[in-house]
């Protein structure tokens, strides 16, 4: 079955996500169509949506102006990296007044918790999907995990990637940017919802 994966292309590193998703689909040998989502109409009939890294304030404003919030909530699986993860979280610290969130996933995040760009860093991470080179750029801190949320990776003591299944919906959030260095998370994301993952 041909999977339709949307990539929110309003702002951020959506081009890198598109590249990572196509490489992941190639590795899994799954047919996959990429939709660069810029309007509400393009959200219809998607099997999954990727929310890229960028500025969560900008992303929130643009989604609100386009009235895309309710449509996004209906999509069966969502991957959010960095700003995307902030958009998905239920609790957000450090948001600016008037900033709206999708509030889909039972995690708490703190914006710019590590500080300015001077505190951005790179490190090799052991994740439950495999080892990855993770880049944290003005990254959010995941400071709370709900009961059903499974952590996939830790940097020190902080969870930096998490997965949750709510009914038939799957949510995957990363505080770092897997799209810049690996396809592991995109492969996991593409497999979500299929029987293969249920067996794991």
């Amino acid at each position: 079955m041909n999977m339709r994966i949307g990539i929110l292309s309003l702002q951020g590193d959506f081009a890198e996500h598109s590249h990572a998703t196509l490489s992941a689909a190639y590795r899994l040998n799954t047919p996959c169509t990429i939709v660069h989502v810029r309007t509400k109409e393009q959200l219809e009939g998607l099997d999954g949506l990727i929310m890229p890294g960028g500025e969560s304030t900008t992303m929130s404003k643009l989604l609100l102006r386009k009235g895309m919030f309710s449509e996004i909530s209906k999509i069966p699986k969502i991957l959010g990296t960095c700003a995307g993860a902030i958009m998905m979280a239920k609790k957000v610290e450090g948001a600016i007044p008037g900033q709206h969130f999708l509030s889909l996933m039972d995690i708490g995040v703190k914006r710019n918790a590590y500080g300015s760009q001077a505190s951005s860093f790179q490190m090799r991470l052991k994740t439950s999907l495999g080892d990855v080179d993770a880049t944290f750029i003005r990254a959010p801190l995941i400071n709370f995990l709900g009961e059903n949320v499974k952590p996939l990776a830790y940097a020190g003591e902080n969870p930096v990637a998490a997965y949750e299944q709510v009914g038939n919906s799957h949510y995957l959030a990363c505080a770092f940017h897997p799209e810049l260095s690996t396809t592991l998370f995109h492969e996991f994301f593409l497999k979500l919802g299929s029987n293969e993952i249920a067996q794991q």
């Binding site: 590193d13 890198e16 960028g54 001077a118 490190m123 090799r124």
Partner: peptide, 25 residues
Amino acid sequence: PQQPSSPVFGTFDVKSGLAQMLKGG
């Protein structure tokens, strides 16, 4: 051996990474 390493700051990947996140803005 690929062990989790300690954080490295200010590499070119980290620097150009911020620029990547500003795209479309």
